[in-house]
Amino acid sequence: MTYIHKIDSDRCKGCGLCVTICPKHVLEISEKVNTKGYFPAFQARPEDCIKCALCCSMCPDVAITITGAEDADQTQQAASTEDNDG
């Protein structure tokens, strides 16, 4: 079982609560704006992520999700459709 941590950059309002709560300092605020004109959060150091879901629980806009994939193929597929850079 692998886990995919994904930020929906169009839902994100860039409040930064997830950035401060992340114990591994994975997240940062992007320099690009999203469709609503906010600067969304993105995974600056995704390899450090331990999938603790603290950011998900703190996010007021339910923009962050963690989905489980059974095998590596699904992980690859999901990762390729993912939009991390905001």
Binding site: Y3, K13, L17, K51, C52, S57, T65, I66, T67
Partner: peptide
């Protein structure tokens, strides 16, 4: 280690009008 996290079904897909944070 890790856990999944998704939007609950009782919540709609609409983006809220609330201020950031």
């Amino acid at each position: 280690m890790g856990k999944t996290f998704a939007k609950p079904e009782a919540l709609s897909d609409q983006i809220t009008h609330y201020c950031p944070g």
